[in-house]
Amino acid sequence: MTQAEANPLLRVTRLRTSIATDMGRMVVISDVSFEVGAGRTLCIVGESGCGKSITSLSIMRLLPKPQGRIEAGHVSFLGRDLTALSEREMRQVRGRDISIVFQEPMTALNPVFTIGSQLTEALLAHERCGTAQARARALGALREVGIPDPESRLDAYPHQLSGGQRQRVVIAMALLCRPKLLIADEPTTALDVTVQAQILELFRQLRNSHGMGLILITHDLGVVAEMADDVIVMYAGRVVEAGPVASIFNRPQHPYTIGLLGSLPKVSERQGRLPIVPGTVPNLMALPEGCGFHPRCPLAQRRCAVDLPLLNAVHGDHRAACWLAPLD
């Protein structure tokens, strides 16, 4: 974190986004702040509907139109406020400076064009270079992500590749213009574990060799433990805990994080019953007063139902949004 503070690649400050629904406007994330430094990995963790994907879409300004809207806050990328850019300027940023990879590799590729033409198209859109040069770079990119026999793959169509290879092509495309920041939204959820291991390894290499910043959005805490430098835990649209990965896993400071980590089955032993978090995730349209987690929290006090706790430092860089923190 100290490294990131000195030279933050991306700084998100008090971001607040809403989506229009049939029942009116719904604030889906609020008060989300974090930083990502060059060569660092930030993992955003949370269950479905907690706002982790909306956060990434807000950064990229790819919210569904016209329903989605950034209400407040700033996204500062190398000192430039992305929320203030025109759509045209933003298009320049996307793909060249920041790239995004989604969960489903098939939808990110156009089925009627070859892999090669899709890769070179992305290059030609952002950089001045000849077709031959673009093709050479596309080939290099495929080789880099470990696709076997890249020459023949350039002329293949997406459906001719396996799921893992398609995801690698998508990643190759995202990395083509050497972005300074890669946002990967559940990049390996649809893949098998052995393929997932290969892709995570690829991310690690790219981060180390190019100093690329990485935001990894995932619900798999195993992936988080393995990849993250820093972690933010989101619940009902807010960041409830943030800090270095070891600190979060070893001494979690928010009851929700504790429940989340505790309910994971262990690989090392067969437990009896798994600990579980009572209740269910609240509806964003009807969030409880005070702390969003208090109806499910065994430690909740009267204050928790009235005042919203803010993210406060607990130990060093480790911050938690809980009135009772530090819990240990």
Partner: peptide, 22 residues
């Protein structure tokens, strides 16, 4: 087994890499 990420940052990943593709 070596490919599963273990939710414990204290255990370093130790991968057995496989050749080729499935």
């Amino acid at each position: 087994l070596s490919a599963i990420p273990i939710p414990d940052p204290n255990i370093p990943p130790s991968r057995i890499s496989l050749r080729g593709e499935l």
